[in-house]
């Protein structure tokens, strides 16, 4: 009986751990997408930023390590590159996340990830909106409607567009021989 217990306890620990890891991976999909973009951060030439060197990976998962573990345990999947980052702004690749394209920009301050900016995130399906709002601050939205109220002035860009077209038109006329 005791020998059976000796076998069962570690087996249950390991099984529980594996389930926890799988569950963790499935529920942290957005984080995985972000991580997958990190190794390619230096691909945009426009940004004069340092290349993140190949770094050792470590786990950031919060799952506790089994205390009793006589057999080798499935090690958790690496989640984030470890080590000190060089300060700067890094733009990741645009990644197809099946529910839409995700592209982020990472801002490193004092060697640490200080901000993640979503340059692109899925927003065109109900499911995607739910996923997106988990990471983005939720801002109020409304459908616009024409106001009848009299105002002192109107702010808009059409003036500029009109001026731009006018100017471009005149420039094109000058080009014509």
């Amino acid at each position: 009986m005791t020998s059976l217990k000796k076998i069962l306890v570690p087996v249950l620990f390991v099984a529980g751990f594996v389930i926890a890891v799988v569950f963790q991976r499935n529920t942290r999909s957005t984080e995985n997408i972000f991580v997958s973009t990190l190794p390619d951060v230096d691909t945009l030439e426009a940004i004069p930023t340092p290349v993140i060197p190949a770094q050792k990976l470590k786990t950031t998962t919060s799952i506790p390590t089994p205390v009793v573990s006589p057999t080798p345990v499935v090690s958790p999947t690496p989640m984030m590159p470890q080590g000190k980052y060089r300060d700067g702004t890094y733009v990741g690749d645009a990644v197809d996340a099946t529910y839409g394209i995700v592209q982020v920009k990472a801002v490193i301050t004092d060697g640490k990830l200080s901000d993640v900016v979503f340059l692109s995130y899925p927003n065109d399906r109900e499911n995607s909106i739910r996923i997106s709002t988990m990471a983005m601050p939720i801002l109020r939205q409304e459908a616009i409607s024409v106001q009848s109220e009299k105002v002192d002035a109107v702010s808009g860009a059409s003036y500029t567009s009109a001026a731009f077209k006018q100017s471009l038109g005149s420039a094109l006329l000058k080009c014509m021989m």
């Binding site: 616009i144 409607s145 024409v146 106001q147 109220e149 009299k150 105002v151 002192d152 002035a153 109107v154 702010s155 808009g156 860009a157 059409s158 009109a162």
Partner: peptide
């Protein structure tokens, strides 16, 4: 206070959608 309209971006009229 000065009242300022935000122009309706869907036409070129001076019509506002927010004050």
């Amino acid at each position: 206070k000065w009242s300022v309209g935000i122009q309706n971006p869907f036409n070129t009229l001076q019509e506002s959608v927010k004050t």
